[in-house]
């Protein structure tokens, strides 16, 4: 196949992202993933690059309130979107309840997966509050109760190679119960 000088040239374009409430327009190589835009251009390195193929969940962020893998999205796909990263979830002195619960339950060892775990859990709580079912939901038409099986299933997109899963489960269960969404609350 012949080389096409036009299309082999790096293509760039303006992309506007509203990250943690602040709008910025960047001139990006169109190949830039949302993950690389956040880390390399917004200098928000809380969001982590693990596998870079959507398998580990370390890059989980919220886009318009919905959790996604930032590594499998191009920044340009999200022009105008609102992105929330771990830096926008809470700050030192003003932690999100999930951040406090992760500390209280010691829900990490190395901490590399933690920003993705917490962003994912924020998304999980919103999905459950909206009534979205999961594979662990017995009756698809009944209200969602976040028991342990539901939390485990809904967090299956986030790997923790230190295997802090029991503590991650406890932390999310604490917050789910305090919000009234958990089992036996």
């Amino acid at each position: 196949m012949g080389q096409n000088l036009l299309t082999d040239a790096i293509q760039r374009g303006p992309v506007t992202l509203v990250v943690n409430g602040e709008a910025r327009t960047l001139d990006l190589d169109l190949r830039t993933t949302l993950l690389d835009a956040l880390r390399e251009h917004f200098a928000l390195t809380g969001t982590k690059k693990g596998c870079d193929h959507g398998q580990c969940g370390a890059c989980t962020v919220l886009v318009n309130g919905v959790r996604i893998n930032a590594c499998l999205s191009l920044a340009v796909m999200h022009d105008g979107d609102e992105v929330t990263t771990i830096e926008g979830i809470g700050r030192p002195g003003a932690l999100h309840p999930l951040q406090t619960a992760f500390l209280d339950r010691d829900a990490f060892q190395c901490g590399y997966c933690t920003p993705g775990q917490i962003c994912s859990a924020v998304g999980l709580l919103a999905e459950a509050a909206a009534g979205a079912p999961s594979q662990a939901t017995g009756d698809l038409t009944a209200p969602i109760v976040l028991d342990d099986a539901e939390i485990r299933e809904r967090m299956s997109g986030n790997l923790c190679r230190c295997s802090a899963y029991p503590q991650i489960l406890e932390a999310i269960r604490d917050v789910a119960q305090s919000s009234g969404a958990g089992a036996g609350a």
Binding site: G54, L124, S156
Partner: peptide, 10 residues
Amino acid sequence: LAGASPQLRN
């Protein structure tokens, strides 16, 4: 719901 992960399904 048996496919992929929550993030991917979103």
